[in-house]
Design a protein around this nucleic acid. Sequence first.
DNA 1: CATGCGTCCTGCAAGC
DNA 2: TGCTTGCAGGACGCAT
Length: 277
Amino acid sequence: MPELPEVDVMKTGLEELVVGKTIESVDVYWDAIIDQPSVDEFKKDLVGDQILDVRRRGKYLIFKLSNHDLVSHLRMTGGYSLETNDLEKDKHTHVIFHFEDGSHLLYHDIRKFGRMYLMDRNESKNFTPLLKLGPEPTMEDLDFMKFITELGDYNIPIKSLLLDQTFIAGLGNIYADESLFRAKIHPLTPANQLNRGQTVKLYYAITDIIRIAMTEGGSSIRNYKNAFGEQGNFQNYMKVYGKEGEACQVCFTPIEKIKVGQRGTHFCPQCQVEAAL
DNA sequence: CATGCGTCCTGCAAGC
DNA sequence: TGCTTGCAGGACGCAT
């Protein structure tokens, strides 16, 4: 499932593969992928647009086109690939951008949760979902003191807060669980009950985990691949995600899995103790 | 306003 | 073996 590091890898791949290409036509095979405008307008408006740049904000991709901004969210299973020779679409290919040079950019998405939003040029800066995003989980963007202070504003489980994109943009279930393990914080601990030491550890855990995941090309679980069809390596660094029942690498206690805010949550019951109240 | 839950989807795995 | 059931989860919409 693409989280920030995986989307970033996809962005880098797309930059190399499609910048400079001009769209000749667009096919849409699953209408719900196109959130705005209508499918007909989407297909019509993109004709003749040239791809100038590809950017990322949180888990969103932003294609900067000569006449539009195209915002794309991959959600669970979305992804892009470029076909330069024969067009090989399968049942999971839902949108195809045909380029004037004869190549094709395919959007595929098994679960069909992904969404695309087309708007006028430079209007993504006024696009509400992007405006609401919190800071990037990097040391450059995530202000240390602000992070520490704002944790005290939320009386919800810290795991749930880490998944709130308006608090921090880009963390998903994997990196939230891995960050909490690294910081030795129990996922159910209310955010406003973390002590000073825990908040500091959490800041560095999040930024470290994301930095490592980005340098390792993201994670490849459930066959996730980047725009080049390559896999990432961060799954080799995972300590708790998907490891329920396995011995903790630190203390050998079996990793447990619980539900927090309807989401599967993995943690070590020995290393990640609840805050002392 | 803050929080919680159902919804969208398909593939896979577990259970009988 | 073959069927049914449940689970995976990001973000939104609606309810409380």
